[in-house]
């Protein structure tokens, strides 16, 4: 295990990081028009409502893009780590890491599932790993 850079939370983003610390991946849902939004922000761009509730993400998603930053080296990351954009089934997109898979086996569109990892310095982050798709017609 290791440390991770700690987010500098603001009044607008604190719920998201508090959620991860409580093992929950949260998405803002507008109370006015029910639109989901990420990253966190105070106002709904569709109806301008300031009211919202957090909902818990199902954690299922697909790889939209992925890369391996190689240089420079960072104290927080093992060489070869994978950064990915994940499309959640709810319809929002997240930056995260892909774990438990060889880079050569990752494909765009690959199904993944979220888990939450607590790092040594107390930072909790959402991470993703490959997910086995249920066969067509089953749930």
């Amino acid at each position: 295990m290791s440390d991770r850079p700690a987010p500098t939370t603001t009044l607008d983003t604190k719920f998201f990081w508090d959620g991860l610390a409580a093992d929950r991946l949260l998405i803002q849902r507008c109370s006015g028009c029910a639109a989901l939004r990420h990253p966190p922000r105070p106002m709904c761009p569709h109806c301008n409502s300031l009211a919202w509730q957090p909902i818990e993400a199902c954690g299922r998603g697909y790889v939209h893009s992925f890369v391996q930053p190689r240089h420079p080296a960072w104290p927080w990351f093992e060489d070869g780590y994978i950064v990915a954009l994940i499309d959640l089934e709810e319809g929002i997109r997240l930056v995260s890491n892909l774990c438990g898979v060889a880079p050569a086996e990752v494909t765009i569109g690959m199904p993944v599932e979220a888990f939450i990892e607590r790092f040594d310095n107390g930072v909790s982050l959402h991470q993703f790993r490959p997910r086995r798709e249920p066969a067509a017609g089953t749930r």
Binding site: P5, P7, P39, P69, W76, Y81, V83, N97
Partner: peptide, 8 residues
């Protein structure tokens, strides 16, 4: 916040 902790 939403990129650096993941190594971007």
């Amino acid at each position: 916040d939403v990129v650096a902790p993941f190594g971007l």
